[in-house]
């Protein structure tokens, strides 16, 4: 007999992605690279290995893909075409209107990240269901770890208004943007939606640099690592994570060594992935045609098992702790290329 009760849908999930250096392999540190990037056709743009597969696997009927990028609005058409070529369906795509910033004389806003991304994130959040969980993806080239963490803690009311004001001042955010941020923040109901913040280490910044943001921020060397953590977190199944791996093997030359090393790197940082590895072993036993690309299966399982055994006792996960934003103000300030390089 059918019950008269319909179970509520599982909480919706929002995946927020940056584009340049997070989804796309973009170079714009020099004027020449900037021009080349601006003139590239969609088919010439390259995605970071595994990023497209990861988005495709994460995107379901109960999830939303929201993209907020510092790319100029003039690139909208080419970016949409690129995402389409990669089979990526998005729900929001927000780009930076730097022409408007120029016309209004807001020159600091041209490089600023906090004053641009924070209000966009808060506005998007205001349209989302309270119970919606979020996973955010950024990179180490700009202030993504800072902005995303601040956004998460603002929504959760773990950060005070005076601290936010100090941060916005240090980040050289214009007054009208400050007002916009504060207004949106007050409107959003309190929740604690942000589960993970993945930072793609495009510049290979040492992972410990992000330790100050707590264990919610996960620096990753590739998207296989993100897939592993998301499998452990329950966002992906083992076969879905394996599809990310397959794309990386087939399109970017990843192999047993690089994949098992990536796996071990996470173990050494305290991520308990034993159950994920077991899930992989089970998934790989199936007849799925897709996984023929990464066979022989025993090699993969052996490689992962060896890396696990080589460590002896796995370390404990790092403890959660409040983020001291006032000690991280340097990360919030608009950064020159030289300064970015200096950090790494």
């Amino acid at each position: 007999m059918l019950t008269d009760r319909i179970d509520p849908l599982p909480p919706k999930r929002i995946y927020r992605w940056d584009l340049d250096k997070t989804y796309l392999r973009t170079e714009f540190d020099t004027l020449r690279q900037l021009v080349r990037t601006a003139l590239q056709k969609a088919s010439e743009k390259k995605a970071v290995p595994g990023a497209a597969a990861l988005i495709r696997e994460l995107k379901g009927p109960e999830s939303r893909l929201c993209i907020v990028s510092g790319s100029p609005t003039q690139m909208r058409a080419v970016l949409i075409e690129k995402l389409k070529l990669d089979g990526v369906e998005f729900d929001e795509l927000v780009l930076k209107d730097n022409v408007r910033n120029l016309l209004r004389g807001k020159f600091k806003a041209l490089r600023g990240q906090v004053g641009y991304k924070l209000p966009v994130l808060l506005e998007s959040r205001s349209r989302a269901p309270v119970e919606a969980e979020e996973v955010l993806f950024g990179d180490d080239a700009e202030a993504d770890a800072f902005v995303y963490s601040l956004y998460a803690d603002m929504v959760a009311r773990r950060v005070d208004e005076p601290v936010v004001h100090q941060v916005l001042q240090a980040a050289e955010v214009y007054d009208d943007d400050v007002d916009r941020i504060m207004q949106r923040w007050r409107e959003i109901p309190q929740a604690d939606p942000v589960r993970r913040i993945f930072i793609n280490l495009d510049r290979l910044t040492p992972p410990a640099y992000f330790g100050r943001y707590g264990p919610r921020v996960v620096p990753i060397f590739n998207y296989f690592q993100a897939a592993l953590v998301l499998t452990a977190d329950g966002h992906l199944s083992a076969p879905q994570a394996l599809k990310v791996m397959v794309e990386m093997v087939q399109t970017a030359g990843y192999n047993l060594l690089t994949l098992s090393n990536s796996f071990q790197d996470l173990l050494r940082r305290g991520f308990p992935l034993g159950a994920v590895a077991a899930g992989f072993a089970e998934a790989l036993q199936g007849p799925a045609q897709l996984f023929n690309a990464v066979r022989p299966v025993p090699d993969i399982i052996t490689a992962f098992t060896k890396r696990l055994a080589a460590l002896g006792t796995p370390p404990a996960p790092p403890p959660a702790k409040p983020v001291d934003y006032l000690s991280l103000l340097d990360d919030a300030r608009p950064r020159t290329h030289k300064a970015r390089k200096g950090r790494a």
Binding site: L204, P207, F221, Y254, S260, N261
Partner: peptide, 11 residues
């Protein structure tokens, strides 16, 4: 600074 894809550790 390193590339973890090319590093393994054996205790």
């Amino acid at each position: 600074r390193h590339n973890a894809e090319r590093v393994a550790v054996h205790h």
